[in-house]
Amino acid sequence: APSSAPSGSSLPAYFIKGSIIQLADGELKHVEDLKTEDFIQSAEISSELKIDSSTVERIDDSHTPNFAIVQFSVGEHRAQVSVEVQVEYPFFVFGQGWSSCCPDRTTQLLELPCTKLSVGDVCISLTLKNLR
């Protein structure tokens, strides 16, 4: 069964500092050492996945404690997508690194160095390549 972060967060274990991540070319890196280029190059190798730019348009409090609703404008068509996530959930911002709605909580729970996610930040997200 997939393990999760220590008490206080139900985020997956791969966001905990020190977790080992395998890039598409087989290289292993710690989650806290990942760079924008690692995601871009991995997506280029992938036959199924492509990276989209997702710009943060709004961040609102959720009715659920410790959750936030983040609205993104996704891809070249600027499709509006909202996700409800724990405030400590880290998104990877292009050229910047891990960012969350509550970076203090992310650092406390996951030990993952993190900055504050803000409106206008451009996050890395994935979509499926068109398979024809």
Partner: peptide, 25 residues
């Protein structure tokens, strides 16, 4: 005796959210 424990390795795409709008074409 201590049994060796395997260290989990996670694929890179686990870390990236799927924000896939409905594709239209």
């Amino acid at each position: 005796n201590v049994e060796p424990r395997s260290v989990p390795v996670f694929p890179w795409h686990s870390l990236v959210p799927f924000l896939a709008p409905t594709q239209s074409d």
